[in-house]
Amino acid sequence: MKKTILILGIIVIFLSSCAKKIDGSSEEAMKSSIEEIKNSLDDEKKEKFEESMRLIMFHQLDFGKILQEGGTEETVSDMKSKIDGQTADEIIAEGEKIQAENERKKEEQAKIEIEELYQKIEQVEKDKVILAKFEVKRSRFYKRKKGTYYVTEEPIIELTVKNGTDKAISRAYFLGTLASPARSVPWIKDDFNYEISGGLEPGEEVTWYLAPNMFSDWGKIDAPKDAVLTIKVKKLDGPNGEELYADNFGEDDQERLSELLAAYPEYKK
């Protein structure tokens, strides 16, 4: 039994010593030995070897150094010294190590991003409570004649708002939707904002007659009289133009969160 184990050990050592290795003595020798190793492998192992070589190559690259100093020759030299004397199994093992580290970093970054998106949701929910206090009491959309001979029509968004927050507001951001009761598709759904001259102090109520550009989408609308304008307050800026409250968790954010949670469901709250 001991003789059998000893013989098997000798065979393993012999096969290991006979395994083809990469020759990094020159660029030509390196290319030739790599090709020789690839030709000695079956299809599955060859694919792993080639993928591992790519991972090692990109892991070695210092793109900043190459761009700033043109260190291509130095990079090739580093690559040769890294893989010199390596067997296919050793290259594959190194590739798997790099891949595992890449996956770890990728998951770590995803975890941070997921947490940031959840924090954004929490902040938006708090902000919505305050945004609701900036009340749009009345909203209308219509067109009125303009010009000396009233040959053109300009779009008008008429809003009556009351600042129920405890902060003075310098600019308000809205999402306007003009729709008819019997239609499932609105005539327009668009964002707009208004810089408030002198600001709007807490408790103040005012009516605005906003005139969007007549060549904008608002100017192109030809909606019937039964169309109703609904307004959602999206964001409010403070006295110095700073953002106070915002409902800014949009479709892109939700799509990104869903994408990340599909890949890492363990971080779902």
Rank of each mutant, 00 (worst) to 15 (best):
M1R: 06
M1T: 12
K2W: 09
I7D: 07
L8S: 13
I11F: 05
I11N: 06
I13E: 07
S16L: 12
S17N: 10
A19I: 07
K20E: 15
K21P: 01
I22N: 09
G24M: 07
S26L: 09
S26Q: 05
E27S: 14
E28M: 09
E28T: 15
I34N: 11
E35L: 12
I37M: 05
L41Y: 03
K45R: 13
K45M: 13
M53N: 08
L55C: 04
L55P: 02
M57I: 07
M57P: 01
F58W: 14
G64W: 01
E73Q: 13
E74M: 08
T75H: 04
T75K: 14
S77E: 11
D78W: 01
Q86A: 15
Q86C: 10
Q86T: 12
A93S: 12
E103S: 00
E103I: 08
R104N: 03
K105Y: 00
E107Y: 01
E108K: 02
Q109W: 00
I112K: 13
E115G: 06
E115T: 15
L117R: 10
I121V: 11
E125V: 10
I130K: 08
A132P: 01
K133Y: 06
E135F: 00
E135A: 12
K137A: 04
K137R: 10
R140F: 08
R144E: 15
K146V: 15
K146T: 12
G147F: 03
T148L: 13
T148F: 06
E158M: 02
T160W: 07
G164L: 06
A168H: 09
I169C: 04
S170F: 00
R171M: 11
R171D: 09
A172W: 02
L175P: 00
G176P: 00
T177Q: 09
R183Q: 12
S184G: 06
P186I: 07
W187C: 13
W187E: 15
W187H: 15
W187K: 13
W187P: 10
K189W: 00
K189A: 11
D191I: 13
I196P: 04
P202G: 06
V206W: 05
T207V: 11
W208Q: 03
N213C: 11
N213W: 08
F215I: 14
D217G: 08
D226I: 04
D226F: 00
V228G: 01
L229R: 02
L229N: 03
K232Q: 14
V233R: 05
V233H: 01
P239T: 09
L244T: 08
D252S: 04
D253C: 04
Q254F: 03
L257K: 10
S258N: 12
L261Y: 06
A262N: 08
K268E: 14
